[in-house]
Design a protein around this nucleic acid. Sequence first.
DNA 1: AAAACATACATTTTT
DNA 2: TGTATGTTTT
Length: 725
Amino acid sequence: MGILDNCTPAQAEAITHADGPLLVVAGAGSGKTRVITRRVACLVERGVPPYRILAITFTNKAAGEMQERVHQLVQKGGVWVSTFHSMCARMLRQFADAIGRRRNFTIYDAADSLSAVKASMKDLEIDTEHWTPSAVQAAISNAKNELIAPDDYESRAASYFERVAAKVYRRYQERLAQNQALDFDDLLLHAARLLSQETAFRDYWQNRFSHVLIDEYQDTNHAQYVIAKELAARHRNICATGDPDQSIYGWRGADIRNILQFVGEYPDAKVVRLEENFRSTKPIIQAAESVIANNTERLDRALYTSREGGSPLRMFAAPDEEAEAEAIVGQIRKLAAQGRRYGDIAIFYRTNFQSRTFEHIFQLLALPYAIVGTVEFYNRREIKDILAYLRVLVNDADDVSMSRIINVPPRGIGEQTVAALSRWAAGQRVPLIEAIRRSPEIPDLAGRAGKAVDKLRSLLDALAQVRGPVAKIIDQAIKRSGYIDWHKASRDESSEERAENLGELVTAAARYDERTPDGTLEAYLEEVALVSQIDEYQDGDNRVTLMTVHAAKGLEFPVVFITGLEEGLFPHQNAMESPSGVEEERRLFYVAITRAKDELFISHAGARMRFGLITPAMPSRFVEEIPPDVIEHLPLFGQAPPPAGREDERPPVLRKPRREEAPEAEEPAPPEKGIEAGQKVRHPTFGLGEVVELTGAGSRRTALVRFKGIGIKRLLLEYAKLEKV
DNA sequence: AAAACATACATTTTT
DNA sequence: TGTATGTTTT
């Protein structure tokens, strides 16, 4: 096996051969992932049985990549590479009794959890106007991350809000137990508790692993810290890697002290510092270093690069967010003309809502793009509906899922019927599905309602009989429930898209079946519950990637645009009140900068539409923290006098059509293009398609085109090079 | 049960 | 401003 080329021989020796506690403090772009992967491979090579090695990564995507890479290096599988959440789920299923659950427990996502919080508040008749469910949910989540149980929380509650939250917390946990469910935080909470308090559980897992490695250690919260510490307690072969300057999850309980105090915790720890950056050019590193130097809470560390040359950072100042997006897209086309691949380019923003402006313009120009993690696939309504059927099949105590599908698609089980069923179930202290099974015994169910419930019962029975791969079960659920016909019948605009999504769900499940030949419905649902936004991102598609800075962690791109650098947005308003909040925002900016390999563009808008109001904004304080000699200010876009002529003839006419200009549909279609509805066309990116509709006139002439396998796109004729076929 | 209409709320960041 | 959810109407 080759030598590590991104560190000194002594460091390489420590990384590959040292046992005992090891801390790798790795700066951005220093090849940390390679280091930890190599360590795992070397352990295997030294004869450590692969199944005794546990590597914990931050996302499932990273886990998959590491697993594959280790396999390539040593031609051996069996190393357990996982995220904290997936790992805990697996551990808890094996010891479900210890937490008072059946092993087929359901994992609730944030939305499921929120509805359980709402229901708990309703149970307790707590006013949801005054105390918002999401605030209570956040309080509960924080308590769990600190491993605080409801009783402890109540006894230390200092404010009225906390006393209310404590009551909801207790009721919420009861509800989860009734539904045989755990939320994300429970996975960590229970694993941490069992590891520190339950001998059988602790002994089993401590013996199971001889070596434990944790990546992105700076972003571990208290529960994760306890889990890592306990898992490694027996053999003390704990290797933590991370970068305190890249700690960006403080708001969800990540505690930067976990990494800062690692050596205090393990005085015999070896420390390896990787300070050479192999990713970025000098100006980019200079900017990053100069910005992060303004933080106080950090380990003493410098980052340097040997890469010579490199262009300076470039900055746009735009009047508003649309002009900002136009300028960036203009710059991207310039780069593309110079031979840059779209897949080399990424656009980052602080908040998800900023993606809309970009999405609009990319669609208009038919430039290839991919947004990472907007409305996640598995959060779409139709997907959640079908998954709810599966969840009920796996865990029939799951009332949240049962209520979700009880009348979806509509089958005549109205509000009154649901209320009667729920009342009966509550009275008997049994799950809702039991009321459906035994509906003939329920007095309130008159003939018509009773029949409707009978039909639901036979549907559920029929689905429970289906055997075979997950894809088949999903397919049956979609068809037999009548879900697909229901959508076909409604001429809703979104029905076609929903049908496509359901098709995609079956396809994805088929991939799962292929990948996991011994997979179960239960394991599939678990995987689906724990996918992260970034897991869905695939590079190699040659598209411009759009994402939040948080999602960009761990990635790199030759060209990066960091947008919306305005006071109140980046740094975000809610973080600006405390110095530590600003420091975390600054680390976030540092992460963004250090994603760039070759070229970095930053931009801000003088005003931005927020809540429907045009809100002015000052440039971010972070911009001034970049040394002036590594920044070049590009001319303000659109400031050059427009070429003579009417406004809509000015080169990139990218403004979205305003509402008041709507009557454009009535204008006669100019015949000169010769493109009309029904015309078959070819597009350089999307391929063959058929024109569905034409609207607008002149430079705003727009075609709706249906492309095979891609869907309907809205294209400006002036820019989309449509070729008649 | 669908459609039409009205209102509320959002914008941190996510496993 | 746009979407998501709730309410009233057919």
